[in-house]
Nucleic acid binder design. Structure first.
Lengths: 202, 202
DNA sequence: TTTTTTATTAATCATTTGTTTAATTCAATT
DNA sequence: AATTGAATTAAACAAATGATTAATAAAAAA
């Protein structure tokens, strides 16, 4: 189903994504993209019609990739709720260490242009995930304190993602280099599940 | 000490801030600023030299305002740790409801231009605040579980701020309008302190 | 009032930017 | 080998953008 991209198209998309992530949509020029991907400027429009279309494609694929990976963990049939939380932290922290600019980029562009998200594969899948169901079962059984599911999932994501978005501040506050900062995030792979479980335990 | 701004300068700054917050630095044009503030385009450069200088001034004042308000609560001599957490949540959630675009804007522009932050009034004040000290006292006394202070303050801010940055997603997921979303955030003023305290209790 | 300084304006400049055109090269097909 | 269609290129266009200029209006100082 997925469109097959030629080498040139991939070069353009790769360069464009890296620039969009770093500088945002508006601050990135088509000439920069052409230069970085080592193609002629006109090819950008030849293959992708316009800067905006190219951006939309990259945005969609990026979000789609991310959501797919996320839902995969959320919906695993074999794992317990607490394992799911652990796996979520591990997976998403690793993913974000690999692409630390992504969360701020996505949320910022989403702010600038909320409609570009409407086409997205239903984000509602998260609320209907096994993770949420398992938590609610736990509540019924009296194991967990009752928290609205929307708050529950928001809390997990907040603790995982926000520190990355604050990295410039945290690194300045604690005089960290990138490696030290990443270590701090690695620590959180073990801590966040503990914190979350404390939060939901009665 | 603070510079006195003329009426015209305030008009420019107000319009510019609102546009920068909404669209970011690059996507905002000087002509838009001039139009919105109802001044002649040349006055922008007359008073502020350049778009970038104007932006720096706005950025600095915004961050300074925010940090001042934050540190004020963190360093209150009268309140207990748990009260400080409650007050922080209340104050910052209210602040962010009033200016919901600010966190994403700040963190994004900071990502694009990390140096613009170096001039900032020491963010280190947070780590040396009474709030952190009180938490560490509690750890010594054996009341609280030991968490690195940097994680402790990060967690508080994460739970408070991140949901605002996700508002487009949350609103779509739960089909909320702005009022309903704000209510959700108001709820968190009471919940977050409870969650944080559970997190740090042994 | 006259002079001087400050504030405001319209017009313009020099770049930059996204996009298009028309010509050329390359690759596949006949 | 000739032909056709796709890929690539250099050049150019039109609009937008940040900034400046030179002239004028308003306010303050003399």
């Amino acid at each position: 189903m997925k469109k097959e991209y030629s080498k040139t198209e991939i070069k353009i998309k790769t360069a464009a994504k890296s620039l969009f992530l770093k500088k945002g949509y508006s601050a990135t020029t088509t000439r920069e993209i052409a230069k970085k991907s080592d193609i002629n400027l006109a090819l950008l429009n030849y293959y992708f019609t316009s800067k905006w279309k190219l951006f939309e494609i990259i945005m969609f694929e990026t979000l789609f990739d991310f959501l797919s990976k996320m839902v995969e963990v959320y919906n695993d049939e074999k794992t317990s709720l607490e394992d799911k939380i652990k796996l979520t932290c591990e997976k998403y922290i690793d993913m974000t260490i690999a692409e630390p600019l992504l969360p701020t980029f996505v949320l910022n562009e989403l702010k600038n242009n909320p409609t570009s998200f409407l086409k997205m594969p239903s984000t509602k899948m998260i609320m209907k995930s096994r993770l949420v169901a398992q938590y609610q079962e736990g509540v019924k059984k009296g194991i967990y304190a009752k928290i609205e599911p929307i708050h529950f999932v928001t809390n997990i994501m907040s603790l995982i993602v926000f520190p990355f978005m604050c990295s410039p501040i945290l690194m300045k506050m604690e005089k960290l280099n990138t490696e030290e900062f990443n270590n701090l995030m690695h620590e959180r792979k073990k801590s966040i599940p503990k914190w979350i479980i404390k939060m939901i335990k009665k």
